[in-house]
Amino acid sequence: MGWKDSPIETLHPIEFYYELVSTGRIKIDKNKKIKGPITIQDPCNLVRLRGAGEKVRYLVNATCEGPIIEMQPNREHNFCCNGGGGGNAIGPPWKRNRCEGARVKAEQIIATGCHNICAPCHNCYTSINDVLKFYNLEGHAMFMDEILAETMEVPEEFKVG
């Protein structure tokens, strides 16, 4: 049947991006940094299960002018976005049910007062955007690949033209 242990190392992109930024393979352009206060949604799989909470914060610190305003509670104590564990995938009929169950998340976001929410997970990203819309809140969720692709330094040899 399958493999007993992972035969090859597997990484979440956050861990991979952390490696790229901390070793200097990707340099951040100071002029392109994301402006305004930002808060972080801790994905359960990445933070509670893999313990990469500090790596997310390192990347956000490197790419955003900040300040980071933490949700309360945060890191491995943060609440689930309510999209994980198949929460999003059970489909459109349950969307209202799902948003009602995420009122705590909306309250956490309101308390931070941030409009930028870094949500480095597909489920969290979708779910946070749905919650913001359902509770008529301003702001939007942001992926880490989006932040990194926008703020990284592109060397001369890669420029078109």
Binding site: G85, N97, G101
Partner: peptide, 13 residues
């Protein structure tokens, strides 16, 4: 089990 729980494991903590 499908629509009112995300198996997020926060309760176990």
């Amino acid at each position: 089990v499908f629509c009112e729980c995300n198996l997020c494991r926060r309760c176990s903590m």
